[in-house]
Design a protein around this nucleic acid. Structure first.
Lengths: 333, 333
DNA sequence: TTGAAAGCGCTAACAG
DNA sequence: CTGTTAGCGCTTTCAA
């Protein structure tokens, strides 16, 4: 049987209150009693029951992190950022992956809401997050990360600036002289994709190039999905000379497929990927990527959650800027 | 204020026991009362407080997962496997990354032991895990994953067969005619590395090639670390013709470095990496890897934890076999 | 400086 | 079929 505070108290001939104070340093206890209590605690290797503590104090020092696609490079590093910051701030993290399942996401929110955690950081599966209002109305701290939309009110958000991401990548391709730029993405109806498309359109618009819906291709966010997506896109539009690909695995698949089609990168097809994955510099050809800082987004999201926990009115939207890392695949050098 | 079971009971003119039974389906309740209770529950969007439930039931349906290096490709996918299996079995997962900090690992174990979780899956930082006995002696369910050693008694383990991994990779290189095979690794004094080295030695031994300590090179498990490691190793032994590299990031760095040294792969240096990372087929040259199945290891580890929770005598060691994926970097094709 | 006691919200005997 | 009641192990007034 696990030893409890009561037993420690009994053996030390003090009350549980005194033991509690010794453990938490909440009041001054005479040297003598303090020593005796500590001795018994060590003797039994006693650890306070945190479930009981949580119940009593109505807080758990635990945060929930719900992501929709794991393991994905961007998400993984974002998780790392959240985890790291949580640890620094003395919090634990409950990690849940919804696997892009909208209903499981809501179920999970319900579960976490039942006082399991002090708040949650959510990277939602879809645009359908109005249901979050039922939690925020109850003052349950929620922050959106990575993906967002505005149907959920009074919620802080930490995201990358995906409009700028789409804009910068497209402008770069445009400057290399491309006019027919395809875009390959892995998830639809989420802000990350939508915002990048808006940026793409804006860049095109500034160059007086009409937007062509058919240059957009949705595929699975996997190596195979990327390969299939280029194949289908180039079949439809063999006039495309450049590609902007929204996910590292898809970029890898796309490159395989392009090589298999005996096309050259960047001569026949120039290409910009997303997220600066480790192997990018040694791929043939080295790949140009535009990236958003996942770890910083994660850390910032945790800080935003802390702000929200301390002040239920907090609802800033923090957007981190992208950076372009040019290599050969876009035509540079 | 959050609504409690007591308030639901009061409004429905029943006892909390009845409400509890309705919620948990633990006893049959008359249709009429059932309906009324459910109605009130829905009206207030009531969710039982799981902290209280946990305290009462002495279990949390939550498991802890402590890893030492995140995000690392292998670990990330292993985390995914654990998470997926936990979800399937109705458990939540508390994820902690120790960042290879041995003391933080022990602190974390203490924390989780305080009834926060029903058990923990640990991928330890070091060989120094004798301290785990203090938990297992208290019947706290712990399973080791990925890394292990035998100073912790009565603990189930789920790992890859790293001896076989080292053996198979080395044999393959040997069959390509290599006799001077360097090995680059990222962590020392852990079973994964040690076992692979044992396998490497055994393969050498079977081919009557003496083991040379100086062909082993430790570096940081990063792209830069991999580059630095080859550089230093080849400087010391320019006669080396093949490399076995223990980590995907290091493999990527090593390839960059070898190219920079104007050496050709596989003609000058043949190479086998570890873990079949996505970009391996499109790197120049495509890289041969030996891999262990991280997701299956993760899933199996969770099942082992469940076994341990249900039977404190459970202590199997499950070892999953490696598989070699040959491409050009080893000299194949 | 310390202790008594109430109670966090729930479950589970047990009794009716 | 339903209610009473006694805790789970801790923190925190309040009083001494």
């Amino acid at each position: 049987m696990k030893v409890t505070m009561k037993q420690i108290a009994k053996e030390a001939n003090v009350s549980t209150a005194t033991v509690s104070h010794v453990i938490n340093g909440t009041k001054h206890i005479t040297e003598e009693k303090y020593k005796k209590i500590m001795e018994i605690i060590n003797k039994y290797n006693y650890m306070p029951n945190s479930t009981a503590k949580n119940l009593r104090q109505k807080k758990t020092k635990t945060a929930g992190l719900i992501v929709s696609s794991f393991p994905d490079t961007f998400i993984t590093e974002m998780v790392y950022g959240v985890e790291e910051r949580a640890r620094e701030m003395g919090y634990n993290l409950l990690l849940i992956n919804t696997n892009e399942d909208r209903n499981y996401e809501e179920e999970t929110m319900n579960l976490l809401y039942s006082r399991m955690v002090d708040g949650v950081i959510l990277s939602p599966t879809s645009n359908d997050i109005e249901y979050l209002n039922k939690f925020t109305n109850e003052e349950f701290p929620v922050v959106l990360v990575n993906r967002y939309n505005d149907t959920a009110k009074n919620i802080p958000k930490v995201t990358g600036d995906n409009f700028q991401t789409g804009y910068d990548a497209t402008i770069h391709l445009l400057r290399h002289g491309h006019k027919k730029i395809g875009m390959i993405y892995g998830v639809s109806n989420v802000s990350t994709t939508d915002d990048r498309i808006r940026g793409y359109k804006e860049a095109l618009n500034q160059h007086n190039i009409p937007f062509n819906e058919n240059y957009m291709e949705l595929g699975h966010a996997t190596v195979l999905g990327g390969a299939a997506a280029v194949k289908s896109l180039l079949k439809r539009h063999s006039d495309i000379t450049a590609l902007f690909i929204q996910n590292d695995l898809m970029t890898i698949g796309a490159i395989s497929q392009i090589k298999e089609s005996l096309l050259n990168i960047p001569e026949d097809i120039a290409l910009i990927g997303f997220g600066d994955f480790a192997s990018a510099p040694i791929i043939d050809p080295p790949v140009t990527n535009i990236m958003l800082p996942p770890d910083i987004i994660g850390r910032t999201a945790f800080d935003a959650l802390l702000s929200k926990i301390n002040n239920s009115d907090y609802k800033k939207h923090i957007e981190l800027p992208p950076s372009l890392i040019t290599r050969k695949s876009c035509g540079c050098k």
